[in-house]
Design a protein around this nucleic acid. Structure first.
Lengths: 343, 343
DNA sequence: CTGAAAGCGCTTACAG
DNA sequence: CTGAAAGCGCTTACAG
């Protein structure tokens, strides 16, 4: 950055001031102070000059020479920030940032990667990826080919969220169990007609919830209808058409809307119709506290992902093979919109 | 990052494959293709190999050789993320990230800087600062000495928020005018006894609001009492003691609490007591929509700050001297808690 | 038109 | 115990 290369303090300058060679400065700095190493006097002299001059090593040069920089890259496949996906990314980033702070890492957000066809491409254009010691990958879906290239390229990578691709370490949320238990419990309570209003087919998490719902609903009559955020009319038509006793709504905002609509139509909830959501509502439409729903631990997910990557990069605390892929429990908020069906 | 230096593609490798020298590859890459330069055939051959091999230049090496990397650093003085200050930083970061995306910059968050005595120190420990082409500085207060060192060190810097330090470019919010007009308007409506519940003395923005309130309240009786977030009892005691017709509350959450308290005590608001806040409430305590208050454009502030820094770093669009320090208008949300005093 | 060379600031064998 | 040297991957004068 400093165009004024004049004032710039380097190891050479330190060396001159301390009356040693530049290599010695580096040795002191990196505490290569083993058995037969730099004697304390020299060391102290160098350190004093470093103090006075407030020298800090140039990270680019360090990296070029093969050192780590404690920089963790964060790559988001969907354009994260403008708006929209904010509710999704904000808690993740909070966790990531908190853990980075704890671990003493800096965070490099690859906001520059071009968005093509609605998603980011890692390898388009000049990539600063290499600046990072490792990269966290966020997004609902990711390109398997790109993942492969990353791993082949020798990048240390952790995905936030479960991935099918076999080489990728991840921390995910156990949506299969959570949805299976939630829906299965309802079926045990007597629900026999279940409507699942699901998001468009997408990444692993969407598929996992589908799997869980199907497994949980085994033994009941399950109808699956696609309905995303805001598609209240479509959702409500499906409810009227299929007359379920339980609606499972993947999008929490939509679940809140369906709940309203049901009551407006005179249906008692949860007596006549039970409503459960598979996610947390966004900030814009907070939704009622009474909604029975999953509460995906997204901040914790971010935190744990960063922690895993940090261990992957560490010299002395490498994770064991079975720690490379973890699923976090997904709590259920009991709420008050699920009950045994009226008979 | 790649420990496997084997697979790593470099310019040398490209050069071998294309049958040219490494320097030629660099020339092609940097489009130093002036008058008497690389002939199209060579150029195309090289580009084709680059394509096939998916080569991208190592950013550390580029930087070491004196190039820009389109990386913008973000340094937050207060520990930003864990919680607490989130309501403050989140909108700023949203704006910064959106603009970075637009400008094609990556963002480097210096989450690693150690927090000492409750604030971050830029120059403690190894600083990755130099990796960035320029740095955005966020925080309520900043150490003037550190700011000086940054500028002396040749760093390109923009502060988010107005700064007294004369060398620092910034984008800020015009709190002086906003509070002056808001309070001045109330005084013109007939308010004569004004209580200002202000935050502890701090950075420039706090001082600016104080200045504005004092200017606006000229001609009225102004009492200033310190009361921060959550100090409802202290705040209410002050109201009872001084019996103002207008309370100006710097912290919006506290303003909401005072409003509740006043009504609980049987005071008509805004008939008997008017309440205005000088900020936006946090996410945790949304506060009533009816609150008359300032609406600091924080997302816009983040966006504009990044944009200014980007221009500062650009080759062809350098800002003029009078564009280096900008204040954004601060809108007022009219609300319903300010009215002429009952007589 | 292109190649050989120096230099950016660092780390780390390798000689003395 | 310390210095001279090579090398990390790049850019850019400078010679051919």
């Amino acid at each position: 950055m400093p165009r004024t290369s004049s004032g710039r303090v380097t190891q050479r300058r330190i060396a001159e001031l301390a009356g040693v060679s530049q290599a010695t400065v580096s040795l002191v700095l990196n505490e290569r102070t083993g058995p037969g190493r730099i004697p304390p006097e020299t060391r102290d002299r160098v350190l004093r000059v470093i103090q006075e001059t407030q020298y800090v090593a140039d990270p680019s040069a360090r990296r070029l020479a093969g050192m780590d920089n404690r920089i963790i890259g964060v790559f988001t496949y969907e354009p994260a920030f403008p708006t929209g996906s904010q509710d999704f990314y904000a808690p993740l980033l909070t966790g990531i940032e908190a853990e980075a702070e704890r671990a003493g890492c800096d965070l490099m957000l690859f906001t520059s990667a071009p968005v093509r066809d609605g998603r980011r491409r890692i390898f388009d254009g000049p990539t600063r990826l290499r600046l990072a010691d490792g990269v966290l990958l966020l997004g609902l879906t990711m390109d398997a080919a790109e993942l492969g290239r990353l791993v082949d390229g020798g990048f240390r990578v952790v995905a936030v969220g479960r991935r099918d691709a076999p080489e990728i370490p991840y921390v995910g949320i156990d949506y299969v169990s959570a949805t299976r238990d939630l829906v299965g419990g309802a079926v045990e309570q007597g629900h026999r007609r279940v409507l699942f209003l699901h998001l468009p087919p997408g990444g692993e998490s969407v598929r996992d919830r589908l799997t869980g719902v199907r497994t949980g609903a085994a033994g009941a009559h399950l109808v699956e209808v696609e309905a995303g955020p805001g598609q209240v009319e479509a959702a409500w038509s499906a409810v009227e058409e299929h007359a379920p006793t339980l609606v499972v709504v993947e999008d929490a905002g939509l679940a809140a809307a369906v709940l309203d609509r049901a009551r407006a139509a005179g249906l008692r909830v949860p007596g006549r119709l039970s409503v459960v959501a598979l996610g947390a509502p966004g900030r814009a439409e907070p939704g009622p506290d009474e909604l029975t729903r999953l509460d995906p631990p997204r901040t914790e997910l971010g935190r744990r992902s960063l922690a895993l990557l940090a261990r992957l990069l560490s010299a002395d605390d490498r994770p064991a093979a079975d720690e490379l892929r973890t699923l976090l429990d997904c709590p259920v908020i009991a709420g008050a919109t699920l009950a045994p069906p009226a008979r």
